[in-house]
């Protein structure tokens, strides 16, 4: 256990080992570690960001959904109103039409009746004149009594 030349050999070996370690072992390993640390940090950041984006997107979706629902409700409301109005208008028009048709029917019937009565009256007048003529053919001059007959006809 004396100090001897071994110390020189050991020193050289040590120096070579340190040199080798510094040159070929340490840099790649520490670079890989640092790179991986950076990657992991980036990954975590990205994950956080994605989470935030997702939350924001969900909020947007909720907002839009609410808006859409509101719009839909408005549209339905309008459509209902319009439908009701159309029905009302149509009903109104139908009534009017009916009234008109009925009125014109009445008028027509009235006119027909009027015409028939006129006809009848004329025929009755003719009949009456003919009958009267037959009765008083012999004694009454047609011309002398025409005014009486006409008066009679007018009264019918």
């Amino acid at each position: 256990m004396d100090i001897n030349a071994t110390i020189i050999g050991q020193s050289i070996a040590f120096a070579v080992f340190v040199w080798f370690c510094m040159k070929f072992v340490w840099p790649p390993i520490i670079n890989a570690i640092e790179e991986r640390q950076k990657k992991i940090a980036d990954g975590l950041n990205a994950g956080e960001r994605a989470q935030k984006d997702l939350e924001k997107a969900q909020e947007d979706i909720a907002e839009q959904l609410k808006e859409a629902k509101q719009q839909a409700a408005e549209i339905i409301e309008q459509a209902k109103k319009r439908g009701a109005k159309i029905v009302e208008d149509e009903t109104q028009r139908g009534h009017e039409e009916r009234e008109k048709i009925v009125a014109s029917g009445h008028e027509e019937v009235e006119a027909e009746r009027h015409r028939a009565r006129e006809e009848l009256r004329k025929q009755v007048a003719v009949l009456a004149v003919t009958g009267a003529q037959k009765i008083i053919e012999r004694e009454i001059d047609e011309n002398a009594h025409r005014d009486i007959v006409e008066k009679l006809v007018a009264e019918l």
Partner: peptide, 22 residues
Amino acid sequence: SVLLGVLFLWSFRRVAKKSSAG
């Protein structure tokens, strides 16, 4: 000592050679 030193460097060098961030 040299054997152990070489063992150390060899085994660590193996890692260093194919070290990646994966």
